[in-house]
Design a binder for these strands. Sequence first.
DNA 1: CATCGGCATTGGATCGTTCAAGGCGGCGAG
DNA 2: CTCGCCGCCTTGAACGATCCAATGCCGATG
Lengths: 329, 329
Amino acid sequence: MGEKVTIATVARHAQVSRQTVSNVLNAPHIVREDTRRRVREAIAALGYRANQAARQMRTGRSRLIAVRIEPTRDGINGSVLDRFLHGLTETADATGYRVMLYTARHDDDEISTYDDLLGAYDLDAFVLTGTKHRDPRTAWLAEREVPFVTFGRPWDTPEAHPWVDVDGAAGTAQATRHLLAAGHRRIAFLGWPAGSGVGDDRRAGWRTTMAEVGLDGAAPDRATEDGIAEGEREARALLALDAPPTALVCASDSLALGAWQAARDAGTDVAVVGFDDTPVAAAVGLSSVSQPLGEAAARCVELLTGLLDGQQRDPQLLLDPSLVLRHSA
Amino acid sequence: MGEKVTIATVARHAQVSRQTVSNVLNAPHIVREDTRRRVREAIAALGYRANQAARQMRTGRSRLIAVRIEPTRDGINGSVLDRFLHGLTETADATGYRVMLYTARHDDDEISTYDDLLGAYDLDAFVLTGTKHRDPRTAWLAEREVPFVTFGRPWDTPEAHPWVDVDGAAGTAQATRHLLAAGHRRIAFLGWPAGSGVGDDRRAGWRTTMAEVGLDGAAPDRATEDGIAEGEREARALLALDAPPTALVCASDSLALGAWQAARDAGTDVAVVGFDDTPVAAAVGLSSVSQPLGEAAARCVELLTGLLDGQQRDPQLLLDPSLVLRHSA
DNA sequence: CATCGGCATTGGATCGTTCAAGGCGGCGAG
DNA sequence: CTCGCCGCCTTGAACGATCCAATGCCGATG
């Protein structure tokens, strides 16, 4: 491998000045047609690649996007992040951006990490996953005017920031409609305790759909922490009712899996639909609401590049999930 | 937030020159005690952080490690990469490095991505996951003297490069010993077709353990592509034998899950052990061989930083997996 | 008392890129 | 004919860090 190819090498080779080469790269329209061509040929011939560090030093922009990788919680939902990350990386690549990972144990920790990253690497933007009520991170970033997108709606703060989310209510509504169409009438919901934005949203989709057909009275609704064992326990309780449900819409695949196992053990034929279409669901044949993670990731990058280029687009985006049917419903 | 804090700001504040500040950061021992303290105080007071781009331009080192994130194949094994990635990010953070992601569709594509990344970002090192027979990527990197570590042994090329791997044979051996201790004698292996390094390794652990106790004659060994359906099919075939196995050691959780389902459907009580301890295994209660992914990641970073600092350590590392027992065995 | 040597510190040059300002030739208008 | 303008290109400077060579300071030594 020869010596380094810089913009000066290209300039010499194409018989122009450094700046002209730079212009061909960053503002092609101000360079005359044939000069541009000559420079492009030189770039190709020499295999020149702009040095990001130098560019960054001058412009203050790094073409780097930071994403937090979370400590794979119960593992079952970890794959959601995994798929999202992959989509993010792919779309970012295509736009000339790169994805940098960071971890953080707590939220405070996360905010101090922002500071580190911004100070040392001049990151262009952040992608946050899993927004919560009263999220301190979005406030911190907004205050410092750091561009960011969240994958997940802000659940209480009406202050607008760009976000992409999947319409959980639409997902559970779709699942509920499917079960209704299959003839079910006593359709229960198995979800999380009220108070989490995501959980309440998913419950709402089921509830309104049931209300639309006038069946909300007969519809049991149970709440518990997430987990397979929890799902199993609650499902058992539901099946022991006088008029047990014939179908269950669940807020997660963990709950759904537990419920599915409880139903099988009880020998009852109960339809179960989970949420997130995790590998576990696919593995055991559980029907599940699938989030368009690849598209969500792509939209996040789109929003960010839009922000960074100064274009002001509509910064909120709600995507529709789809129902993946397997033999559990 | 005030104006940018550079090394010059710190120097003025601490009443020394730029170079002295730089020395405090990069070669503290050559600076007099109290000067050093004064500089450190100024750094803390001003919240100074070295600008990586500027540092990189001068030194040519970016403190960036690139890792490929693969297109979540069947999803069931995706979580392995996910956990590995998390460990990698965490350990790298602690050492002052950052993890950058990249994707690639094919191997050729991957090599051209190396070129891009090296040219544009001056990456310090690469971490490759999943080495294959005759891997062109390691050759390319070695030829250009780019530091890299693979998570996975080189399976045929005797050329040495640093790697970290988990001893798959030890894992299946442990699983087999456990089954033997539980009284099983007809222990079958359900794995992949011969030729893949990882698969052959896992099979070998089972085979030698069976041979040690003189039971290799009575031990059925089946090979198929990875997958739940495949595992189910092969397990059915095994259970239909004249003297069906009472226990199964599997090369993956996918196969194990299929086998486990087949056994349950057949009403037979067969012990099953999977491999990788994926969330799916945890979810359905499948015993599985667990790879120490966090440690593997940490070792990868250790090897890399060792390489980058010019220390020549033993660059090969084989870690022992552990057996996670659940109710399937 | 002058010179030397060791060591902390200093100023200048440098990495590769983009920004700001300026040069140059041609063209239309006064 | 000359001026100003415009399009296209070139030159010098700057981003913030590190490396290199040179300086100042100190006590020790001849």
